[in-house]
Structure formats: structure tokens, C-alpha cells
């Protein structure tokens, strides 16, 4: 009897989990894709985020701002780890090629689809920022999050969010203006 009830609970939890996946897979993929610029890596990060969610989330499995904040935070941390791994691999690849005397083209982190030259410049300027600055710019401009939501996701204070964004925008404006990318 107890086993049956447990099984039913598990089934309900899996159904709720599927609904959460359907709700957040798009925004999370878009966010990680912008950070990583690599579809495969972004898919891996989102997959791991959802697996972690199922294992560690103790509250009700329903779409909510609390859940969204948690998902963005975990996805960001996974994306940062992946970014480090990718960079390390890239450096190793370069070193190996250098030793062999081969000429290697630096693989692009962003596989930006066809966009205007100016927009491409902006995308490149974004890539010049630090990971933290990129995170805030993406959350604010592309994901349309408020300072309060960003502060919950990142753990920064609202004042800090504004401060970092101010300097990030300044850096980007400067980079675009000088076109030194």
C-alpha cells in the first residue's frame, strides 16, 4: 500500500518535473548558448542543470520565480565550469599544434548566425567582457530580468548589479566606438 503511494508520488513528481523542463528549457538554453556560444556545450549544461534539479529540489516542483532563480544560478555555475574546460582544451590544442609547428586557427567561441556587421560588433564587444559582466548584461538585456531578480540569481546586491552593469555598458560603448575589436 505504502509502496503504491510512493510510486504514485514519484510518477506525479516526474510529471511535474517534465512540465518544469518544458517551461524552462528554452530560456536556459538561450542563456547558456549566449554565454558559451556552443550549442553542444549549452545542451550539456542545461541537461545537467535539470538532473540536479530533480535530485536536489525538495520543494514543490512547479514553475515559480524561486525555481527559475535556482535554475539560472545552477546553469550559470555549470556554464562557467564548462567554459573553463573548453578554454583549457583550446589552450592544450594550441600548445600541441605549436609544438608540432602547425598553424592553427583559433576556434571561435561564438557561432553567431548571420547578423548585421554592427550587431556582430556588439556581440563581439559582449564577449570581451568578464564572465560576471557578460552574465549581468545577458540577464538584463536579453532575458529582461529586473535588478532584484538578477541579485537573487547572482547573489550580488542590487547596488552592485547596477554598478557592474554601468561599467560593462561603458566598456562596450567604448569598444564599439573605437572599433578596436
Amino acid at each position: 500500500m505504502a509502496d503504491k503511494a510512493e510510486k504514485n508520488n514519484e510518477e506525479v513528481r516526474i510529471k511535474d518535473f517534465e512540465a518544469v523542463v518544458a517551461e524552462y528549457e528554452g530560456p536556459l538554453l538561450r542563456y547558456t548558448m549566449r554565454l558559451l556560444g556552443n550549442n553542444d556545450a549549452a545542451q550539456d549544461v542545461v541537461q545537467d542543470t535539470f538532473i540536479r534539479l530533480y535530485r536536489t529540489w525538495k520543494d514543490e516542483m512547479k514553475p515559480s520565480s524561486k525555481l527559475a532563480t535556482w535554475l539560472y544560478r545552477v546553469a550559470h555555475n555549470c556554464a562557467v565550469d564548462t567554459m573553463r574546460k573548453l578554454r583549457r582544451r583550446e589552450l592544450l590544442h594550441l600548445k600541441h599544434a605549436e609544438e608540432k609547428g602547425e598553424e592553427v586557427e583559433m576556434p571561435k567561441l561564438t557561432s553567431t548566425p548571420e547578423i548585421s556587421e554592427a550587431a556582430e560588433k556588439a556581440a563581439r564587444a559582449l564577449k570581451q567582457l568578464s564572465i560576471r559582466e557578460q552574465q549581468l548584461v545577458i540577464l538584463k538585456i536579453y532575458e529582461g530580468k529586473s535588478y532584484e531578480e538578477i541579485s537573487e540569481i547572482t547573489g550580488l546586491t542590487k547596488g552592485n548589479v547596477g554598478y557592474i552593469l554601468h561599467f560593462a555598458m561603458k566598456k562596450m560603448a567604448e569598444a564599439i566606438k573605437n572599433d578596436r575589436i
Binding site: 547578423i115 548585421s116 550587431a119 556588439a122 564587444a125 559582449l126 555598458m169
Partner: peptide
């Protein structure tokens, strides 16, 4: 201007 360019990229 920067925001517009970022918007275009998005």
C-alpha cells in the same frame, strides 16, 4: 546605441 546594437544581435 549600445543597447540597440545588442538588441539587433539578439
Amino acid at each position: 546605441k549600445t543597447l540597440e546594437l545588442l538588441g539587433k544581435a539578439g
